[in-house]
Design a protein around this nucleic acid. Structure first.
Lengths: 109, 109
DNA sequence: ATGACATATCAGCTGTGCGTGTGATGTTCA
DNA sequence: TGAACATCACACGCACAGCTGATATGTCAT
């Protein structure tokens, strides 16, 4: 618990800069309707690109583009369909997602 | 708990679109180094604009600009210093911040 | 009153990210 | 083999968001 309120005294001009670079970068990934929708859908289990594109009302290549960003960030990974190798299914990396959640909570905490 | 994995069967092209508009908008507010830094600093108590600008290495008017965005979103509010009304201290609206956190957790959950 | 300070507001420039289009790769089925 | 499909990678154009600089408003000291 830190000092709750009483605003008195002089401003302190020597406060340390908070480290929020990672959290801001993560928030940037969530700050898009399509990417946020992807992560939300993948919370319920794996989905292929065409499924998500249909649900989100976006084109396949657009969704694929956003998936590439999430993949580069390590939040999701791709797995080929067992019987139908045509379809590429994406699933969340739950460990990475949990780490991302912690980063954001360190800011909103 | 939903189906964990077994990727089999045909893609379902009739999945509902997840509602992530609010979460994406909120993430957009966090997706900036300056705004994220502000929210992080205000987690420890109120601060005036000049304090935060100094700590973040940004100009006063720039920080003021970002504060206006956070204020419009209801995440922070301004209070005049009791003894020195020159200084405008900002504090977090904890209820709004908690609601924002829940929105984001609904995506990362 | 006057000047210094703290903050807000607005206009303009610039960079960046999103959506799109296109071509390439790999898979299935006829 | 060849056609249709699923996905990826890359480049282009455009809209938007952030930084800056100038100006405006309010507050304190002298």
């Amino acid at each position: 618990m830190t000092t709750p309120l009483p605003v008195v005294g002089e401003p302190r001009m020597d406060l340390p800069a908070p480290d929020v670079a990672d959290a801001a970068a993560l928030a940037g990934l969530l700050a898009d309707r399509t990417r946020a929708g992807i992560l939300r859908m993948l919370a319920d289990g794996p989905h292929c690109v065409c499924e998500m594109a249909a649900a989100l009302g976006e084109r396949d290549n657009n969704v694929s583009n956003h998936l590439a960003r999430l993949r580069d960030a390590g939040l999701v990974r791709a797995v080929r369909h067992e019987a139908n190798a045509r379809f590429l299914y994406y699933e969340r990396d739950e460990a990475a997602v949990a780490a991302a959640r912690d980063q954001l909570l360190a800011v909103l905490g």
